[in-house]
Write a protein that binds this DNA or RNA. Structure first.
Lengths: 251, 251
DNA sequence: CGCTATTTGTGCGTATGTATC
DNA sequence: GGATACATACGCACAAATAGC
């Protein structure tokens, strides 16, 4: 039996396979940190050449959903298909410059261990330990905070907990400075949300009012998520601007 | 028979070629907007198979330096990857083949002249004339639209109005193709909004529910805004994400 | 320790499809 | 229609990394 979608829309085989794998990862059939079937096995199951399988797997890799290792296999890194329908390029400078102009007030960190749900949000394994900072950002002398922020720092960096509380530097820069790690990429996700009651109280806005939720995953060279920052901005206090060098696709 | 360069640095052939092309692009041997040699020709020159050439060219594409078009060739888009962090390779848009899978239904365009308020939103002078398209985007066979879209096209391109209604290609690409203009950059703004009643009705969501508003200004080489796209996505149907990569190497 | 089996990485040859001119 | 150029897809082979014996 053929795949109806593929026939109807004449999709390339690798797209058919990639979407199938995507569904299976999202549905939990291939849980995070498990191995996908080998390329050879997938080729057999789907009646494709290994070449085509690799093209499909490459797509998932580009999405940051999997990582591959010779001699080991293809491991599921995250189950969330981060981006839907839009791609873009942007310079990170805008993204980082902003951090300098605002004051982040954080309290003392708490130590948390990721359960299933948190692990999914942080794209880590359940059981991993984190330092969690909660704080509010203010711009200039405004009384009203710009945003509510949660920062999760991998517990292996626990020794800089005091530095973080005092410093005005971005957390990721502190980590790079004090430890021998380099971040290879930042994954950023932007979504609209109805602001939860508890957060709304801190921000001084009503429950359910629209807000911008920005999640950033800081990924090290060895593909581990070492820091996650999660922020909620009330709609009227923030918008995210960027300049894009024009690229393929999209209007 | 191994390639000497590859052996010496233990680098794959496609890295050797990618670096060579990179140097030639940066040196101006292949100027921006010119065409690279065809895959076949590169394969001949470097004594590689077309597969290997494509692997090399893919790297440059991932860096945003070139764009490819069947029947035309591989065009140089930029001399350097400007930022330390660059756009990662494909995103899910490729996987889902956004342009083909997302259907944009637009009605007939209306002709509008910008008053003060609209001029501010479009970043143009009051009195400028525009073609305004209003439409909804659908994904796959879903009944519920993904987003509401307004596209404003500068009136000087009015002659492609029919093409836009029929085509599935991005509007900016149509403009570049049919006229002698090139877009230099896109300014994009993302904000959270409470969805207005009228828009909510079209999208099937309640008034005031959270949504993502994305505004794009398409700026030509001579700094004029020639197209503006304004979209509203219900919060639960969309999130915008991007990957910023530090590693600009070709390996 | 070396050996082997497994799995992904690299590379080649070939053929056909599709978009463009 | 024909020619050109990239896109998709099959096959094969060997290299490099890893895990287990």
């Amino acid at each position: 039996m053929k795949n109806a979608a593929a026939l109807g829309r004449r999709q390339p085989h690798y797209v058919v396979l990639a979407e199938s794998l995507l569904r299976d990862i999202e549905s939990g059939r291939y849980p995070v940190s498990s191995l996908l079937p080998t390329e050879k096995e997938l080729a057999r199951q789907f009646g494709m050449s290994r070449h085509t399988v690799r093209e499909a797997v490459r797509r998932l890799q580009d999405l940051g959903l999997i990582s591959r290792q010779p001699g080991v296999g293809t491991r599921v890194k995250a189950k969330t298909a981060a981006s839907r329908y839009v791609q873009s390029s942007a310079s990170i400078s805008d993204l980082l410059q902003y951090a300098k102009e605002v004051r982040l007030h954080v309290g003392a960190p708490t130590e948390v261990t990721a359960d299933e749900k948190l692990a999914a949000r942080l794209q880590c394994k359940p059981g991993q330990r984190w330092l969690k900072y909660v704080g509010l950002r203010h711009a200039g002398d405004d009384a009203a905070p710009i945003c509510y922020t949660e920062v999760y720092v991998s517990y292996e960096f626990a020794s800089i907990r005091d530095v973080i509380s005092r410093s005005r530097t971005a957390v990721y820069a502190l980590i790079e400075k004090h430890f021998d790690v380099q971040f290879r990429e930042v994954r950023q996700q932007i979504a609209a949300v109805g602001i939860p009651a508890k957060t709304g109280k801190l921000l001084g806005v009503k429950r359910g009012s629209p807000g911008l939720a920005i999640t950033r995953h800081y990924v090290s060279s060895d593909d581990r998520v070492l820091e996650v920052a999660f922020s909620i901005y009330p709609a009227e206090r923030f918008s995210y601007s960027m300049r894009l060098r024009l690229d393929t696709s999209l209007e």
